[in-house]
Structures are given as structure tokens and as C-alpha cells.
């Protein structure tokens, strides 16, 4: 049970009422360092139940790092993170969270059918050594239907297009019937018709009352769905408010005004941020985006 002073709001299984007191995400004073170098600093982000939040910013602004921290893939260097009112280090209700990683491909070294990949998302609610129940199968079929891939269930994921694979990954997150979704760049490298299909899927989720946190470089067809836009620049939040206005959409990120860093000199304007690490890794080095192994596992 959580040891936080506030009352533990979610002892029960399944969906919590939407008007639940604790917000799905509450990050206060969050700082993240990769390979010893500070990347995110002073991030305060609270996402209320039912919100549709877009995290935006240039490449290297830290938006993906932030999402990876929120789902527990990267350790929080400083600050506090609560998921559904529980300290993230003690959070165990991972079935309430759906994660769609930034990824070009859903395939691996061995053929896997669409159904098998989506079914793996159901593991958040399955105990080991138990067969799939009828409820599990229904949830998987429903997830495939929601993203419009029901007719491709038996196909090999490796033979789908990039946009279709992205939809499979979304269905995988859906299969666990989560309340809170994190999507890391779901529109990257996806053509316009598939972006529109994605927007339709996300609209369905939004109408069901799901909370959605989405990383995007550009919103495109998703723009009408967004309730709130958080813009990151060089690891800090420079804007947190309603949807971007048309004028703001066309501003280059590095000129975005806000209560941010206050000094804009000497930064690479648009490309990836150079974290100053040597480019060659020895077998015993960790890549920069990989967390220290002793600080990563979710406690259980």
C-alpha cells in the first residue's frame, strides 16, 4: 500500500471512477539525467483524468525522455512522480497504463501474427501459467476492431506497412484495457490517411473517458482532439496551456516564448542535442538512452 500521506484511492481492481480524486499523472520538480548529464529539469506536470495532453517540442527537447520517465523506463533523478496517487516506485497497477513506444516496426527475429502481438498487451491482466480466458480473448478482439485491424489478425506483422504496424502497437496497448495511455510519436513517419485513422481511434478512446498523453512533433489531424499542449524546449517546459493557436503552430520551436530558460544562445537550433558523450561504446558502456540497471526495475 502507498505510504504517502494522502489516502490510498485505488485499492480495487478494474476501472476507477473518472471523478477519482488522484490525477493519473502528477510529476513535481522532475529532473532526469542521461549518462550523468541533466536532460530534463524542473518539470511540473499534472494530468487530470480524461485529459488529452500533447507533449511537443523540437528533436532533442526531451519530450520522449519525459514520456519514458513517466512510464518508468528511465529513473527520475529528482522530484516526485505519482501515478493514480501512488508513488511511481510503489506503483503496481500497470494494467491501468497503456504504452505505445516510438517504434518503426512491431516485428522481431521470428514471425509473429498480429493477434499474437496484440495478445501480449493483455499480459498486464494475466497471471503466469494461466490460459487465456474468454474475457481476455474478447478484449484482444475488441482492441483489434478499435484500430480497424480485425481482418489482419492472422497476418505476419512484419509484412504490414509502417502505419499498420503502428496501429497494431496501439491495439496491443488497448488489449490491457488501460485508463491512461502514453503514445510516443505515434504520427512519426505515418502517412496522412493513417494519421487520420489514428485520430479516429484516439477519438474513440477520448470519448470512453481515457486519459491520453501523446508525444508529437506535429499534430496534424490530431489537433482537434488536444485539450492541452505542453511544449518542451531544451529539457524545460516553456508552454503549458490550451491547444496551440494557428499562429503558434507556425512558430519555430526555438523562438517559442514562455517562462522558460531565458537564454537562447549557443544551442543547436533544430537538430538533435549533443549530450557530449563519446560516440563509441565499449561492451561495458550503457547507451545514453538506457537507464542504469540498478535503478530501473519497477519494485515489486
Amino acid at each position: 500500500m502507498p505510504l504517502t500521506p494522502r489516502p490510498a484511492p485505488h485499492g480495487q481492481e478494474g476501472r476507477a471512477p473518472a471523478e477519482s480524486a488522484a490525477p493519473p499523472v502528477r510529476l513535481t520538480g522532475g529532473a532526469v539525467a542521461l549518462g550523468g548529464r541533466p536532460v530534463l529539469r524542473g518539470i511540473d506536470l499534472t494530468v487530470a483524468g480524461g485529459d488529452f495532453v500533447a507533449l511537443m517540442g523540437a528533436n532533442g527537447s526531451g519530450k520522449s525522455t519525459l514520456v519514458r520517465t513517466l512510464v518508468g523506463l528511465l529513473p527520475l533523478g529528482r522530484g516526485g512522480l505519482e501515478l493514480f496517487g501512488t508513488d511511481a516506485r510503489r506503483f503496481r497497477d500497470w494494467h491501468r497504463v497503456g504504452y505505445v513506444p516510438q517504434r518503426g516496426s512491431a516485428a522481431s527475429g521470428v514471425p509473429a501474427s498480429v493477434w499474437e502481438v496484440v495478445a501480449s498487451g493483455r499480459l498486464t491482466r494475466r497471471r503466469p501459467l494461466r490460459p487465456l480466458t474468454r474475457t481476455d480473448r474478447a478484449a484482444i478482439t475488441d482492441a483489434l476492431g478499435t484500430v480497424g485491424m480485425a481482418d489482419r489478425a492472422r497476418d505476419n506483422v512484419a509484412q504490414l506497412s509502417g502505419g499498420q504496424q503502428q496501429r497494431v502497437l496501439i491495439a496491443r496497448a488497448l488489449a490491457g484495457e488501460p485508463e491512461l495511455f502514453f503514445l510516443d510519436e505515434p504520427t512519426a513517419g505515418v502517412d496522412l490517411p493513417h494519421q487520420e485513422a489514428l485520430a479516429d481511434t484516439l477519438r474513440v478512446l477520448k470519448d470512453r473517458g481515457s486519459t491520453i498523453v501523446l508525444v508529437a512533433h506535429e499534430l496534424g489531424p490530431l489537433a482537434p482532439l488536444v485539450d492541452r499542449c505542453v511544449v518542451l524546449r531544451d529539457g524545460r517546459v516553456v508552454r503549458d496551456g490550451g491547444p496551440l493557436t494557428d499562429a503558434e503552430v507556425h512558430l519555430p520551436w526555438h523562438t517559442m516564448l514562455g517562462g522558460g530558460t531565458g537564454h537562447g544562445h549557443g544551442h543547436a537550433p533544430d537538430g538533435a542535442v549533443d549530450h557530449g558523450a563519446p560516440p563509441v561504446l565499449s561492451p561495458f558502456d550503457r547507451p545514453l538512452d538506457s537507464p542504469a540497471p540498478d535503478a530501473t526495475e519497477h519494485p515489486r
Binding site: 500497470w94 502481438v117 519497477h298
Partner: peptide, 15 residues
């Protein structure tokens, strides 16, 4: 299967 297919997703799934 899940852990071999996508380790990061598996971790977020609580495995």
C-alpha cells in the same frame, strides 16, 4: 514472447 518481442513494452506492462 512479450519480453523477447519488445522488452520496453513488457516492462511497462509490469513484467
Amino acid at each position: 514472447f512479450a519480453v523477447s518481442q519488445d522488452p520496453e513494452f513488457a516492462r511497462v506492462a509490469g513484467l
